[in-house]
Each structure stands twice: as C-alpha cells, then as structure tokens.
Design a protein around this nucleic acid. Structure first.
Lengths: 215, 215
DNA sequence: GAGTGTGAAGTAATTCACAGCG
DNA sequence: CGCTGTGAATTACTTCACACTC
C-alpha cells in the first residue's frame, strides 16, 4: 500500500526519470519484461536501489519475472507528471535558448513551447517554428495569454532575478534556470537549476584529485 | 590540519563551485570579507554547511570576521583544479555544441577549446573562431594532437558510446556528457552527465505533486 | 561581540539480506 | 527457482551547539 506520497527524495525522482529513459531505449526483443538488475545496469545504479525507488510508488513487478516494460513505462510517466502536456515558455532566445528550443528530447516527452521572449530588438518579431519572439517588456502578458506553466530561463545572470520576479507574477510555478545565480522565489514556486560550470568544475576537481593520487 | 583529502562528497564539491561563483559576483564594497552566512544565502544553503564544506580543505576564515573574499576565491580555484588551464574538445557541433562553445562562463574560468569534431560533411572543414571542425573518423588523432584533457560530448544518443570509446582511446580522462545515455568507461575515466530531460521531469513531478496537495 | 571550526547528534539515503510470491 | 518488495543495518550527509579566537 504505497502512498502517492510524502518523503520521496529528489534523487529518487531523478532516478525514476532515468529508468523511464532506459525503458524507452530498450531494444526490440527486450520489450517484454525487465529485471531491476537490467534497469540498474543501464541507469548506472544498483538493483536494490531500483526496487526501493519503484516501491515508493507501488509494487508493479512480478516476483520471479521482473517488471512489464510497457506498464512500468506508463506508470513512470504518470508518476513524473508526464500524462499531461506541459506548456513551456522560453525566456532568453540566445544560443542556449535556441539549443533548448530545438532539443528533440523535450518535444518527444510532451513538452510544448508556447512562447518565446527576448529583449534584443533584432530578434523581437522574428519567428522560430511559427512562434514569434516577443519583447521582454510584454512578457508578463504573453506568458498569461499562452498559459505557460513552465519557463526555461536562459537570460544573463544580471537580469535573471528581475525577469524571474515577472515570470512569477505571471503565474508560472516552475522554472528551469540556466543563469548562474541562485534565484529567490516565493513559496509554491519551484526552481530547478542547471549549473553547467559547476558540473564542469566537479570534473576538474576529480581529474586533479586523481593526478595527485598517482604521483 | 585538514587533509587534501579522502571522503569529500560530490555534493560538497558542487557547493564549493557555487561558493566560488558567489565570490566572483560580490558587489564592489563587499569584496573585503564575507561571512558563512552571506555565502550561504547567496548559494542557497546554510551557514553551517558552508563552514563544514570549507573546513574539509583547511581553515581559512578569521573568527569574528569571516573569510577574506580574495583569498577564499584563490583557495577555491586551487581546490577545484582551476589553477591550471584545461584543454577542452567539443565533440558534436550541433546546436547544443554551439551554445556550449559560445558559453562565456566556461571561457572565463580558464577552459580553452582546442578542437571541434563533427561527422556532418557540411560542417567539416568550416571554422568556429579559428578552430576548424574535424571529421569524426579523425577524432582520435585530433584529440591527441591538441592535447585535449576534457571532452564535452553532444552527439546523438545512438552514437554516444562508440564515440566515447574512441575518446577514451585518445587518452581523455574527463567527459561532460550531454547524450541521454549512461556511458560505460574504464576505471580512471570520469564522466559527469548533464541530464536536461531528467531536470525538467523533476520539475514536472514537483508541480504535479503540489497540485495534488491542494485540491 | 561576532563568526569560525568541529565533534556530537540527528536525519536521510543506500545497501543488505531474506521472506514471500509467481 | 528467480526476482520482487521491504524491514533492518549501514553508511553518508546535514544540522546543532558550543568552545575558541579575533
């Protein structure tokens, strides 16, 4: 009897998303049932961890067999909130914004871009895939009009907080932040940061530590 | 007497990188000394956490005062391995690759792009900032020639493992992976993955959970 | 006084190990 | 038998709280 539920760690959720990715990349022929062992190998974790994670939301395996790939996929999509289509606005139409706008994996999962905002007069009024880029100073209205639920934020660090405040005023409750600052938001608004420099520096730390280990 | 040392968690390292970012964004006038309190607020953590993290590598604060911003910055750069310049190769010159190649924060931190590889015949031979894009089938040699230490990998999922194997053969020991697969690498090679879809889905999970909480 | 550095206490996450079911 | 589901044991991480120093 698993609740929908309280106390699921952030890292468990991230792993669920990874399991979903693994399931979607099963070879034809593997698509019947999968064991926690297989999921673990391809997701980069352990079988026990996979079982624990899944058991947080129910018991959808068959003992002695494994998990039905198709139904586990469905279940994970549901858990992650992917049953609904999400309306996403891109705020910041620079190179990073363009890359994310084109990123095929977002679209494939049911994320739909409904608005693009930028402050560059050269870009305002031009279109990407039928979507006209709108001016930053009309953002609040634009976001409301198109019913944006999530904002992908790729603006420069110096304007990130100010833009965020306006995004929040427009009623958006989820932000994926690429700007290298910690955003302040009121309760009820959720920010997930993608910290590219941090990720790269975690790498240089490890590489340097390895070198020191050798001699 | 703090060792250089064993048992520093991945999350502690990531926070160190964030503290460095905070220090680099101090306003003029704040640049003298900073308290763990200030660092914590801007990094999105607690003062105790900041002090614990820093104490893993030494005691570089002054009691009653705080940390010297300038020397803490230096110390963090050193710890993270940023005293040296890193030679980075971009493997995969699509939109995401382009965005990362232009990403100003990498360059600012002393990461230098020394090679670009792609498999698209239309791109091979063209240049980005004086760097000529080289063919995938000459990658191994190209990476050796330019002394690449880190690879930023933005190739499609289906070719990611194969490309990685070649990258490893070329002697590269650090990979920042943007492809949505778990890469297998031999011991001594380090992969840090940036999982954009996972990050976005952690957001949809949280947003959906919030809705359920209300009514 | 103000703010660091750090053991000790408290929480959280992971791994173990095995009962139980298909 | 094989593999899940899960309490119990372990390990890792964070927070507390206070002695210590400037």
């Amino acid at each position: 009897m698993p609740p929908s539920s309280r106390k699921v760690s952030e890292s468990a959720i991230r792993r669920l998303s990874i399991y979903l990715r693994v399931l979607e990349r099963l070879e034809p022929g593997e698509e019947g049932t999968v064991s926690s062992q297989i999921l673990a190998e391809r997701a980069g974790t352990t079988a026990a961890q996979v079982r624990k994670d899944l058991s947080l939301f129910g018991s959808f395996g068959k003992r002695g067999l494994g998990y039905s790939a198709a139904s586990l996929k469905d279940r994970l999509r549901e858990i992650l909130g992917l049953s609904k289509h999400w309306r996403v606005a891109l705020v910041g139409a620079g190179r990073m914004g363009a890359a994310l706008f084109e990123y095929p994996h977002f679209r494939r999962r049911g994320f739909e871009f409904v608005s693009i905002i930028d402050s560059d007069p050269k870009k305002i009024g031009t279109s990407w895939d039928d979507l006209t880029i709108r001016a930053a100073d009309t953002m609040e209205q634009a976001l409301r009009e198109c019913g944006a639920e999530i904002v992908i934020l790729t603006v420069p660090a110096r304007s990130a907080q100010e833009v965020t405040d306006a995004v929040v005023r427009a009623g958006v409750r989820g932000i994926m932040n690429f700007a290298p600052v910690q955003l302040k938001v009121p309760p009820g608004v959720r920010v997930n940061a993608v910290r590219l420099t941090v990720e790269l520096e975690a790498l240089t730390f490890a590489l340097r530590a390895d070198e020191d280990g050798d001699g």
